[in-house]
Nucleic acid binder design. Structure first.
Lengths: 215, 215, 215, 215
DNA sequence: AATGAATGAGTTTTCATTCAT
DNA sequence: CATGAATGAAAACTCATTCAT
């Protein structure tokens, strides 16, 4: 994966944002990196290859960002996860990233290679939450909920918030993540907080701020 | 909206399921109802017009199904809503319906007419939940949570569950709504139940069964 | 030729003016007379039939208007002819008429039925001028020019003036027939007047005014 | 404007001759140069762009051919102009050229870009004649006619002759330019000759012969 | 490695024409 | 007579892909 590929991946992301998956052409992508269509085909045999590679990079990057340091206490890891899941990446490109991902996701049911990647990613993310929950329960810091089911609930809520933030117009959600933030805050207070056996949750704002510094 | 239009709408739905939004052609739609492309253009000037009309019908039907009988106690209305939101329509065409809807949703950011409809629908659904909650709080049957924020959480979780059910392969979710059902059950036990001031929730299974009978 | 046909012919004329021959559709014509396409096909089997009938009516009407009263002296008949050739019809529909005619003419080389009508009309018009000239020469009122060659010159100049008036933008010709009028006046003073053996030409303005009254 | 474009322009000309403007398709043009439709669209975004480029080339070429050597006496320049106006180009492609031009002209009233080019060309041609006349009058070789009005007359007559030569069938005009030639000869003898203050006109035949040699 | 030229297969859309009512 | 529904054929235009350089 050289500098060229990075440039192309960035171009795919931008083109996807401008045109949407359904209207995306190789020319659109070429235009975004001032290269020729031919060159894209030199690097990737087909359009599908290019898009699959793009999704792979998108998810791999994302998974790496989500990885929590296992040395933290589980409640901190959980808040970290929530913050990262929804507010990553934070280089001002967040909406672009989530939109590109949504575009690719809607193709899952029609493309096995895409679906395989989505599945892999879902297993990783949901598994991570379940693992954190299991650890917390084991160490007595969380109430004994079912880790898998609770993970399913958390991930679904986060995912739904993000999806709505993207697909609904500003008149409904505004562009400042207010919708997403509301849902995350309610997740913390209505779902996570009651699970805590003792102590209290780390603050969301502080966590997000730290992530921003770390990134 | 005569029988002809119904036939065309059904064809759009089927074609959308077979090919996906990005690859959907007028010919695909025509094939699904053994009519000519020309006829589609006779009824709808452009492909976009046709798809916008399709989304309109999709959402309108959906909204009507969601409408709760206001004479029920709020906890029953809430369970009804959850069941309908996720398990409607129930004529075996459910996955088809939700997939078609997701396809259209991913176009929202690129099409104002589509987005306007999505917004309208979101306001209606989220508003309905908020209204149910407000009523319950007022009559002392629910704890005094913030109706709007809790509605945002509920709708996000339901939406996320549905989206994942569709976009993830059977290996992750199976085709039997297990993923969705898990999330709904957890919503009931972890979010809704703690809000109840007194009494207990109507059972989900009973409600779904009743809906199936009513529909 | 009933009232219906008249209505259709008017519609063709209007549609031709709005869209031009190349872009003219049966629907355009139907729209101009608030009838259905089907009805047009009921009256005329094909589009070509309809347009040929239209040209026929156009030319026939025109030829009748051009007919001079043979009881006038030849110099009056000649001025009459010039005035009628260019300034007919004068019901404010003149530009419409000449444009429609030009549209049809440009199809002559590709359609034998159209060309046959154009030829017929040319023979009639040019023959009329030649005959007037011959009569004037015979009676000693015109110099002995070659009637056929002079008729060719006169008709070409008139035709060219009309064509330019139509095809050139207002910035070059203005909409008030100034271009055409200039050419006609110059024809009279530089071509016709020198042919006169004796006496002087009837005034153009008076003749046009009389035509307007007569029409 | 490379060899490729030239090949395409030639193809447009031929296709226009074969099918006429109203029936001209991109496929027709592609067929005439054994290239693909796609290639035409690669070079020219739309059919209109292609046709506008074609008209531009047509008129530009024509205008260059019309340019007279200003070192000649005005009467020679005038005869030159008449000969070139009507008998150019003379590579056996004359009728093709004039027909293509007429086709494009009939679109003027419906296409601003086409009309703008026609206007430009008319101003140039008519202005050239007026300038020649003005020069002749100033140097005392022509009678003091109004240069603009006489130019309008000359150009109209030439234009009309050419138009009729094209639009009327061979039975009326024959294919050997007889109609046009007659009109040009009559223009010379009935309009130009009387303007001459002294001397006599250069012969048309000699001038045409010289043009043929020069071209 | 990189590009412009070229194309075939396919897309939306148009339209004259037909047909059932 | 008159119309709306329906269609086949063809139009302009698109686009992933290939190829020569």
């Amino acid at each position: 994966m050289g500098a060229d590929d990075d440039e192309i991946m960035t171009a795919v992301s931008r083109a996807l944002r401008s045109h949407g998956y359904a209207e995306l052409t190789m020319q659109d992508i070429a235009d975004e990196c001032s290269k020729s269509k031919s060159l894209l085909h030199y690097h990737y045999d087909t359009k599908e290859d290019l898009l699959v590679a793009f999704l792979d990079q998108l998810l791999t990057d994302y998974e790496q960002r989500i990885e929590c340091r296992a040395d933290q206490p589980p409640e901190q890891r959980l808040v970290d996860f929530l913050a990262r899941f929804v507010f990553t990446p934070d280089d001002g490109d967040r909406e672009n990233f989530h939109l590109a991902l949504l575009e690719m996701r809607s193709q899952g049911p029609f493309n096995d290679r895409i679906q395989a990647q989505l599945d892999r990613s879902d297993r990783l993310l949901r598994g991570t939450v379940a693992e954190i929950l299991a650890e917390g329960i084991e160490t007595g810091r969380f109430e004994p909920v079912d880790p898998d089911r609770t993970a399913a609930l958390l991930v679904a809520a986060l995912d739904g918030a993000r999806t709505r933030q993207i697909t609904l117009g500003d008149s409904v959600t505004d562009t400042d993540d207010t919708y997403t933030r509301t849902v995350v805050e309610e997740i913390l207070s209505q779902i996570v907080d009651p699970i805590l056996a003792e102590g209290s949750l780390p603050g969301l704002d502080a966590t997000v701020a730290e992530l921003d510094r770390g990134a």
